[in-house]
Design a protein around this nucleic acid. Structure first.
Lengths: 380, 380
DNA sequence: ATCCCCGCTGGAATCGATTCCATGGAATCG
DNA sequence: CGATTCCATGGAATCGATTCCAGCGGGGAT
């Protein structure tokens, strides 16, 4: 983690942790009947009354934004601790237009890639005492819009989204409403929004170069949906890489899925049914790679021997598969963390620059297959 | 930074809200460029003004809780639509003590099991237009407390938690603050809180019976940490099952990890180093199972042939491993969805009953090993 | 000594929505 | 036809915190 200038967040009012043990240990002594326990409804007025100051002063002490006398400071702090005061974030948000909540919209946390992003984003938010609202769009534009609507009514301070579609729905609304926004992993054309993405062109080039090095000339491509920017970017990068390396540019070698597992299988089946099947497969996403893997196996072919397979996105367990999968990977956690850092920056009035993270090749056994091996073995 | 003394006008909003009112009489047709775009800062007062009623009436119409005349209803609705009014959830929450936000605290969304829970919970919440605040405790009690504190200041309507520890920290605070609470997957002793858990005893029995059927008598157990209820429950269930099936109750066959991958490897190493190593392993969690798998492989043993392995929690890709892993599974998604349903019930004043979901055995190749195979092959 | 400024404070307005209360008019009843 | 009830409504209080404003006392400058 880099060191970021810690934003001047008035840090949610102090640790109740110690007062619990100390002060509440013997509460009954003072006034047995008047509930000594932590009450969610302790308000600033109560604190002020106990400290013998006005609510204004109490607020100033606790937020630390304004000058206060040492005496007042001491007494207000003491009163707050004794009563177990916890600022009401809702009221605070209403008055000060800062809710300390940000929305995170991904297509599905069950996809390990997005789970990593979510984890990275969430941990970064916590460090600045922001909470993260989790939303799954389920690769569905309608649900994406529904959630954006919900975020809007919740008046979140900002939104991180792995967007989908052409940006016709609520994405426009967001822009017009001037809600701080950051794209992660994907982008949408025509939006002037800072983004954190992976260097897709570089990733594809790494994969293709790797396969070309092994002597492959016919690479089957299992791409993503054109409605998603990474789908488009990787496809065009693939076409370029193929040309650059002077490989076979047979259009029949290009297929597209929807970033879900099943579509990877379908695509693989289509590719392998060709009368001159590819000797290597490149999948634009981890889930489709798994689908392809299953399909290939069912056809009695052995990945890594009869056929090479390279996938995008490294998933923790890809190394445990049989055979371990070669991948072009990026650090999903960093993706999420960086996006959140950018967002917090924008929220604080800064102007964030888009970030492109590098990808790297992790060669494993699945790409060990050499083309002649496959050539010697007819399709199925 | 606030050095410039400026008027108390929130600079960002005003221009749009003003000219809008005027322009709307003849909206898109007259001035295509100044579309009636949705502005986040439209307030109920604006709607009321446009509809020619008081804010009270406007509120009554939109909330639908009180009687209103058809005429007023019509005009308020129209005004709201035209202005793109969106209720301010913060203000609503402050006044009505209902924030439509719930907290979800799991140990780590990167664990597919918890990702499933999160997905199930979140989708259920959305159906009732609640937002879900995501929190990762990272198997760390301190961070768990930090997050509960954050939830408390955010005044969430309720919390779902896969708890950890003995319940000494903020868990008690929650109880005292009467925040609606539901335990998921795990519980904590001494808390009268509705929970949704899996039938651990049944699951362990299924696994042990399955292995016993194959003739195994020495089963190595890789358990979870005693600080987590599932860790304790599964261990005691294991001991009972061993006794019931009259299997070897050698204490050296019992180990404990921390529900993380590395600890599974360590535990497996320890078990296999025994002079009479087990012929089967039972791991109390999926991540530890993967760790064990790796360790076993490195020792040159083949799962499913030299050694049987059964794991808890089915992960989507367990079937793709080599060999596919036999598991005792429960529906994590249902776990999360059910927990959320319970929570919403409690929030609405209901009294939720705890739910125990059944587990089922999914036999795959990893448990095909028969004891004599391993017996014929000395430890490593 | 007088004036000014500064630090600190209490009081009050404010954020946006909900909800209680009183009121005016229509509808109902004896 | 007068009295009671009911309905819809406007106005105002309220939720809990922030922040502006005015005022008070004291120290420094003139």
């Amino acid at each position: 983690m880099e060191s970021i200038p810690k934003p001047a967040v008035p840090a949610v009012i102090s640790p109740t942790s110690h007062h619990q043990g100390g002060d509440f240990a013997a509460p009954a002594r003072a006034r047995p009947s008047e509930r000594p326990h932590v009450d969610a409804t302790v308000t600033l007025k109560d604190v002020a009354a106990r400290a013998g100051v006005s609510v204004g002063t109490a607020s100033r002490v606790l937020s630390g934004h304004s000058a206060t006398s040492p005496a007042a400071r001491e007494r207000v702090r003491a009163a707050a601790t004794e009563l177990g005061y916890r600022v009401n974030a809702r009221a605070q948000a209403l008055r000060s237009a800062r809710s300390h909540a940000v929305g995170l919209l991904v297509s599905d946390v069950r996809n390990p890639f997005f789970a990593d992003i979510a984890h990275g984003a969430e941990q970064t938010a916590l460090a600045s005492s922001y909470v993260t609202l989790l939303a799954n769009a389920n690769e569905d534009t309608a649900q994406q819009d529904t959630y954006l609507e919900v975020f809007l009514t919740q008046r979140v301070d900002g939104i991180i989204i792995a967007p989908q579609g052409e940006g016709r729905g609520n994405l426009r609304t967001l822009e017009q409403a001037r809600v701080p926004l950051v794209f992660v992993d994907r982008t949408v054309d025509g939006f002037d929004v800072p983004s954190v993405t992976a260097d897709n062109a570089q990733g594809v080039e790494l994969a293709v170069a790797h396969l070309a090095e092994q002597g492959h000339t016919r690479i089957g491509y299992i791409g993503g949906p054109p409605s998603v920017s990474t789908g488009r970017a990787r496809l065009s990068a693939f076409l370029e890489a193929i040309a650059r390396h002077r490989l076979d540019d047979d259009p029949a070698l290009i297929t597209a899925g929807d970033f879900r597992r099943a579509s990877g299988g379908t695509a693989a089946a289509k590719l392998l049914a060709h009368h001159r099947p590819p000797t290597a497969l490149l999948a634009a996403d981890s889930l489709m790679a798994v689908g392809a893997l299953t399909e290939v196996r069912q056809r009695g072919l052995r990945i890594g021997e009869d056929l090479a397979l390279v996938a995008f996105d490294d998933i923790e367990w890809f190394g445990e598969l049989d055979p371990p999968l070669t991948v072009v990977a990026h650090d999903a956690r960093a993706l999420g963390a960086t996006a959140m850092r950018l967002l917090l920056d924008v929220i604080d009035g800064g102007t964030a620059e888009s970030v492109v993270l590098p990808m790297r090749l992790i060669p494993r056994r699945s790409s060990a297959a050499r083309p002649h091996t496959a050539a010697s073995r007819p399709s199925a």
